[in-house]
Design a protein around this nucleic acid. Structure first.
Length: 815
RNA sequence: GCCGAAGUGGCGGAACAGGCAGACGCGCACGACUCAAACUCGUGUUCCUUCGGGAGUGUGGGUUCGAUUCCCACCUUCGGCACCA
């Protein structure tokens, strides 16, 4: 008897991996005769080790890319590293390793770990954002954006993380306590001169998702983040004659404005403040500046403010109203000034009651008894008929908004206006390990672009590691000294580096031609591969990376660098794998699952299959280490089924049932791949395997139907478990490689059921199940149901009131 | 407070279009194999039951012949936003 051929993933997996690599099996090259498919997974930060979350994100997207390849597409599936960033620098400060050394060593290790996954990455397209040949083009994009006035520098109060020692973009400040997205330290405000990208220019276009197959959740998050409000801008005048513009979403309440409120930082505050109020105003401003944003923006906080002594004139009724300052008005939204309508805005109402200001009702809803400003207990924000509103009194609530805007435009005191919550993207970082911002400050010419032929502005490597809070670039003895590209005078380099989200905004383009020297990407490659067809990654990037990359693409399009409306057509998000204790995995909790250990114990195929099986991919969930035994068992059972030889004793019925199940499974696996429902791919395959064991027990082994089943089975599992599939394919004597096979076609005839189980209900409760031919007519179904002995018992000689037939499924008899 | 997602056995989850709830797997129980363990194989596994059935998909209503699926209200959990004028 021959020795049993055993499943040994540790032997099989590395063997096939090196064979695939040697043969360049996963190289993707332009082929105009085939449809392209660009599948992309968000690239990792080289933090040290590939953790189970990376596997969870990458395995299903790899499986799906492989599936698309078997479907005949020319698939591009690249990988790279988002290699600039803070952890590298922190490691340098803590352990004295140079960030470059740390980063590239991590990349080495992670690349090897990625290879152990057996994914079909085309490694010749790998891009690393910290390579000079990469960041040269990040810098080039910066220059282009500046030339198109999409990058600019301004002094403004910005968010500063005192732990990371750098400014952050608004998107990187999270949560109620406004903490740093990376280290969770609450941020503070600082007035600094910083570089921004003009994302707000694209606010309106970014709200248009009509060309995108993206999850509703992401679209909602982005829509809320952009925060569009439609209203009016109205110009009031101070008594000194200065225009004071306000934005309001309720122009119909304009006649109810009984005072104005400016943010303490508003530029007109000093000028309008009356001498008698000056000391009080100054004290308030001082206090406001001292407070953190958290204190200022706490919603349940009592409103505070101070009268400036100044007055403004309401342009619609020439009324003289007092101007206050209060920190509930934010300088960063709208114009930093509001008209206060206490009768119809709860915030203004609270303020008015506290400081005894006039509350005047100008909106009267039809279904309420008349409102009285003197006695009302809260603001009435609903629309309604305009009252006390001069020429517009009596206008119905449904017309109030539009009629007021018409009136404002006629009088020339205001117009329709739109405001967005979205801010421009702050990209300056006071850190070393990033792409230097390619700017030179000349005493005569101000900030000057580094000319293209001087790019990249290289990061110096001989820097000091001192946790001073200052960028090492600033402290470097010589690096910043240079000459002005225009006049040749002594000048200084910008010492800030760029936000790493800048690098990741265009990496999908660098993959196209990572070593191309003339342009950020080879236009021929772009024309063939772009846009990205499927993009997968975590939801946490909904308002960061995914807004930036869309902005970047649209800006690139307007600069005639890129083409098309959107960079990534289809987006899908995976969930998060939690520790076995249902908590977020972290070293300090000691609940981290290490993929390397699992690969060592079970092999990569089992880990891949389990990650796809154990939870819904879009939801994720807590890890369960005993569950992996199930997928390990599955693969052993597949192995044994294919490699064991048993007695054959075929009967036509068994073979018919086998073929039916095979083709039904094929149909559903196909559907699930298209729909990103990976867990049911595995369960369908397990189900079919159980069926195949039954068929073998019934003598199906060795027949042509048997081999068809086996071959289809291996092809279906190839995207999920590429190594065992290749090994078994070779075992069967089929040609190398399984991964160049095409996806099998469903034989619909074979998949069709000959009989169905007709469910018979009486008053909606199941009383019988009858096997009937699948093509049974409704009339026949009804008759079969009515002659069921169980039905007869319930009918008890009576006639049914109603009989409902659902074709091919069910009969419900109502008594 | 506003916006969004999700609540199904002991557990992860399935149910494509309103029509057999609990596929598949874990775990558990019993049995076979074994000196034994592991592996493997087999059987069972929502709850209650007087064995006829009955109840059951977060809770309470509604629509329907029929609801995990649609509608309304509420509860819980998670995520986002939060004085945004």
């Amino acid at each position: 008897m021959r020795e049993k051929y055993e499943y040994q993933p540790k032997e099989i997996e590395p063997r096939w991996q090196s064979r695939w690599e040697m043969d360049g099996l996963y190289r993707s090259v332009i082929d105009p005769t085939r449809s392209k498919y660009y599948a992309l997974t968000m690239l990792p930060y080289p933090s040290g080790d590939l953790h189970i979350g990376h596997w969870y994100a990458m395995t299903p997207s790899d499986a799906r890319a492989r599936y698309m390849r078997m479907q005949g597409y020319n698939v591009l599936f690249p990988m790279g590293f988002d290699a600039f960033g803070l952890p590298a620098e922190n490691a340098a400060i803590r352990r004295g390793i140079h960030p470059k050394e740390w980063t590239y060593a991590n990349i080495e290790r992670m690349r090897a770990q990625l290879k152990s996954m057996g994914a079909m990455y085309d490694w010749e397209r790998e891009a690393i954002s910290s390579d000079p040949e990469y960041y040269r083009w990040s810098q080039w994009f910066f220059t282009k954006l500046r030339q198109h006035e999409l990058a600019y520098r301004k002094m403004s109060p910005v968010d500063w993380c005192p732990n990371c020692n750098t400014t952050l973009a608004r998107e990187q400040v999270w949560g109620e306590d406004r903490h740093c997205e990376r280290c969770e330290t609450p941020v503070v405000k600082k007035d600094l001169e910083q570089w921004f990208f003009r994302t707000t220019k694209y606010a309106e276009e970014l709200l248009d998702f009509s060309n995108l197959d993206w999850p509703e959740r992401v679209k909602t998050l982005q829509t809320n983040w952009i925060g569009k409000s439609v209203g009016a801008s109205v110009i009031f005048y101070t008594e000194q004659g200065d225009p004071l513009e306000v934005f309001t979403t309720r122009p119909d309440t304009l006649w109810g404005a009984t005072f104005m409120v400016l943010a303490p930082e508003h530029p007109l505050v000093e000028k309008i403040s009356h001498i008698s109020q000056k000391s009080e105003v100054e004290a308030y401003i001082h206090e406001a500046l001292r407070k953190t944003d958290i204190q200022r923006e706490a919603i349940d906080k009592d409103k505070t403010g101070v009268f400036t002594g100044g007055y403004a004139v309401n342009p619609v009724n020439e009324e003289r109203i007092p101007i206050w300052i209060a920190d509930y008005v934010l300088m960063t939204y709208g114009t930093g000034a509001i008209m206060a309508v206490p009768a119809h805005d709860q915030r203004d109402f609270e303020f008015a009651r506290k400081y005894n200001l006039v509350v005047r009702v100008v909106i009267q809803p039809d279904d309420l008894s008349p409102l009285d400003g003197a006695t009302m207990l809260e603001a009435m924000p609903a629309y309604g008929m305009m009252v006390n509103s001069g020429p517009l009194s009596g206008v119905a609530g449904s017309e109030a908004f539009d009629r007021t805007i018409e009136y404002l435009e006629e009088k020339g005191v205001g117009k329709q206006a739109v405001n967005y919550r979205l801010r421009d993207w702050l990209i300056s970082r006071q850190r070393y390990w990033g792409a230097p911002i390619p700017i030179i400050y000349c005493p005569e010419h101000g900030p000057v672009d580094v000319p293209d032929d001087h790019l990249p502005v290289l990061l110096p490597e001989d820097v000091e590691w001192l946790p001073t809070g200052e960028s090492p670039l600033k402290l470097h003895p010589t690096w910043k000294h240079t000459t002005c590209p225009i006049c040749g005078q002594t000048a200084e380099r910008e010492t800030d580096t760029m936000d790493t989200f800048m690098c990741s905004s265009w990496y999908h383009l660098r993959y196209l031609s990572p070593h191309f020297g003339q342009w950020p990407f080879d236009p021929t490659e772009y024309a063939y591969w772009m846009p990205v067809d499927t993009y997968t990654g975590g939801i946490e990037h909904a308002t960061m990376h995914l807004i930036y990359t869309r902005f970047f693409h649209k800006a690139g399009r307007d600069m005639d660098i890129m083409e098309g409306v959107e960079p990534m057509i289809q987006l899908r998000n995976q969930g998060i794998v939690l520790g076995e204790d249902s908590e977020k995995m972290s070293k300090s909790r000691g609940n981290v699952v290490a993929p390397d250990d699992l690969v060592e114990k079970y092999g990569a195929d089992t880990v891949r299959a389990y990650l796809m099986f154990f939870a819904r991919w879009d939801l994720g969930g807590p890890w369960n280490s005993s569950g992996i035994e199930g997928t390990a068992r599955w693969l052993r059972r597949v192995w044994n089924l294919v490699t064991e030889k048993v007695e054959s004793n075929s009967d036509p019925n068994t073979l018919r049932i086998l073929r039916r199940k095979v083709h039904q499974t094929l149909r559903s696996v196909q559907h699930d791949f298209e729909a990103f429902e990976f867990n049911t791919i595995i369960s369908s395959l397990m189900e079919l395997l159980n069926e195949m064991y039954k068929a073998r027990d019934n003598g199906a082994f060795g027949t042509s139907e048997w081999y068809e089943a086996i071959e289809i089975y291996i092809r279906m599992m190839a995207p999920v478990t590429p190594h065992i599939a290749e090994e078994l394919w070779a075992y069967l004597g089929k040609g190398y490689s399984i991964h160049q096979q095409s996806w099998p076609a469903v034989d619909e005839q074979a998949a069709a059921e000959e009989t169905i189980t007709l469910v018979v209900q009486v008053n909606g409760k199941i009383r019988d199940r009858i096997e009937v031919p699948a093509d049974i007519s409704d009339e026949q179904a009804k008759n079969s149901a009515l002659s069921s002995q169980f039905v007869l018992k319930y009918l008890n000689g009576k006639k049914p009131r109603k009989v409902i037939v659902v074709s091919g499924k069910l009969v419900n008899i109502v008594i």
